[in-house]
Design a protein around this nucleic acid. Structure first.
Lengths: 217, 217
DNA sequence: GCCGAACCGTAACGTACGGTACGGCTTGCC
DNA sequence: GGCAAGCCGTACCGTACGTTACGGTTCGGC
């Protein structure tokens, strides 16, 4: 019913060495934030700056490649809507919620979103688009089929899958991401994440379960 | 029932000239993003860099003062819980939701949040704390009394005001803020904001309206 | 073994920008 | 008028960092 599915590899033709360099850049980004310098990346990756410039063009190119490299590694649960019943729907929704909370509260995601937000402020918003595409929009692409399957199975009732998804998103994420991005300490234990995922799922079902749908919505 | 209430002025002893300088810095921040330079601020404000440094210490001080200056200008609806009935509760919630959506989708808020997020990544998260305190936490401080009043009046049913607030927050904001911060075009007309505010309020009530059962005082 | 390509390490260059110094101008006060 | 304080405009300094250049080294192909 719910399974991790490897996706088409969007990382176009990266050598192992290049991947190692991007991993180093990524670690540096997580550790030191946006002020990672070309020199630091070169030192950490044990490569020359000349190589960095040859491979990635300039600092922006390196940053973009790094973000894409990490993004290509993010995998969210994928579901198969066959034979859906309420129990498995709930389980899948909780899994989605839990996965998403884990992602957005991870150091890597925070660092990447920070640099993308900074970047969006100044000039081309390349990074922001990449992060969105591999984060929020990827999640939507995975979740919507489940919602549609739930509707087909008569378990859910909604007019628009996009709207339903956004409500689910809001119920799950609430203020977590913005608080983390703004530096608020907000430790999310696995237990807390599990509880939040269950709560969000219940609330979502209370709003969109077909037989139980509140009148006048 | 719902009114704009001026708050204690947290902007400690700023001269008119200083306010004008901060306004200039703010405009520059909105227009040009985080790469606003001391030179640019001085030119825009028609003052000397020396004055900037004397007044605000250093670049961080200027940034902090600017953020606080704008924060001191943000006013969110304040409510009076007396004589609360369902109609006025709904109106107040919608007003809160609408105000909040307008705030987070404003150019100023986006610019401020961007610079605060960038800043949180590198070093002291001063700005992040200020933005949170005057944004999300200020909203909570205003909204919770209304929720409590709703509970007292037997209209709402929840265990914890904080949890109820965060759910409301999630239903209202959903993915709007992170998408805007990441540079996603997402035009929010006044009509759309009004619709979203109404939807979020309805959903919130569906989750937290007490079951016709008069709540034991 | 030889050649060229790729790459490492590092030095050097150019520039942008934070921060400082200083001369001149205005303003308020005696 | 004269003085002092505050401020403007600008030139200047130091440094950090992106970017380039280059000599030395490794390595695959012949």
């Amino acid at each position: 019913m719910l399974d991790i599915v490897p996706e088409i590899d969007t990382s176009e033709a990266l050598t192992e060495r290049q991947k190692a360099v991007l991993d180093a850049a990524l670690r540096l980004l997580v550790e030191e934030g946006d002020q990672l310098t070309m020199t630091a990346v070169a030192r950490r990756a044990s490569c020359s700056k000349e190589t960095l410039y040859k491979w990635f063009g300039d600092r922006d190119g390196l940053l973009t490649a790094t973000v894409q490299w990490q993004a290509s590694k993010v995998r969210v649960a994928q579901v198969d809507g066959k034979g859906l019943d309420l129990v498995s729907l709930i389980a899948s929704l909780e899994r989605f919620a839990s996965d998403w909370l884990k992602v957005i509260s991870s150091d890597t995601s925070i660092a990447l979103n920070r640099v993308a937000v900074s970047h969006a402020g100044s000039g081309k918003d390349n990074l922001g688009a990449v992060v969105l595409e591999n984060g929020r929009f990827a999640l939507a692409k995975r979740l919507k089929p489940l919602l549609e399957a739930g509707r087909q199975a008569g378990l859910l009732d909604f007019a628009d899958a996009e709207t339903a998804f956004r409500t689910f998103f809001g119920l799950v994420a609430r203020d977590v991401q913005i608080r983390l991005l703004l530096g608020d300490r907000l430790e999310l234990t696995d237990a807390a994440i599990g509880g939040d995922a269950a709560r969000a799922t219940q609330q979502f079902l209370a709003l969109f379960k077909s037989n139980n749908r509140p009148q006048g919505l």
